[in-house]
């Protein structure tokens, strides 16, 4: 469980989060939505401990895994190597074939398109051993067909973990029972 208590955060005197409180429960799916620059990534970073809130506190006993907005993959390494770094036990080649195609297994990440990198980043977050999966704008650079394919993969492999997605794309998420948080 993750408890956010009275979180306040501002940048250069501009308030991004003001007295924000929320409880995230295990085995629930959350969608944080709102316009660009409203503070979705900041909130996720505070949850994961990558940024400190100016005021308030975060109580959490979770291990996180995350898909970052800028993917942050190991660019010189292949898709398979990037995933092996995180988890060597899963049937990784099968997953890559399912979401990207067989020819992508040994391709270096720097040669992939933005959307393909995004998919690798999502796979990395899902295969990691964690209690809470955080996906920051995971559907950037993906068309509708690929968004649905990724969503199906995410839901099939969530295995009772908490899922927190920040996204400005909400249409395709409607069929899943997300608890929505508008910023």
């Amino acid at each position: 469980m993750i408890k956010l208590l009275n979180i306040t955060k501002s940048f250069n005197d501009e308030s991004v989060l003001s007295d924000f409180s929320y409880h995230f429960y295990p085995d629930h799916k959350y969608l944080i939505f709102g316009e660009s620059g409203i503070g979705k990534t900041t909130l996720l970073n505070i949850i994961m401990g990558l940024q400190k809130a100016d005021k308030g506190s975060v109580l959490s006993n979770c291990n996180f895994s995350c898909s970052f907005q800028q993917t942050r993959l190991f660019e010189k390494y292949s898709v398979l190597e990037n995933l092996k770094i995180i988890n060597n036990k899963e049937n990784l080649e099968e997953i890559i074939v399912q979401l990207l195609g067989k020819e992508f297994i040994d391709k270096p990440v720097f040669s992939l398109s933005g959307g393909q990198k995004q998919k690798v980043s999502i796979i990395r977050a899902i295969i990691a051993n964690s209690d809470c999966v955080i996906l920051d704008e995971p559907f950037n650079n993906l068309d509708e067909k690929n968004i649905l394919q990724c969503l199906e993969f995410i839901m099939n492999n969530l295995k009772g973990r908490t899922l927190i997605i920040s996204s400005h794309i909400t249409e395709q998420l409607k069929k899943y029972d997300f608890i929505t948080i508008k910023l």
């Binding site: 401990g49 990558l50 995350c66 970052f68 800028q70 942050r72 990395r124 990691a128």
Partner: peptide
Amino acid sequence: EILEVAEIF
């Protein structure tokens, strides 16, 4: 940024 990846994972 990669160090943050290492921290999270």
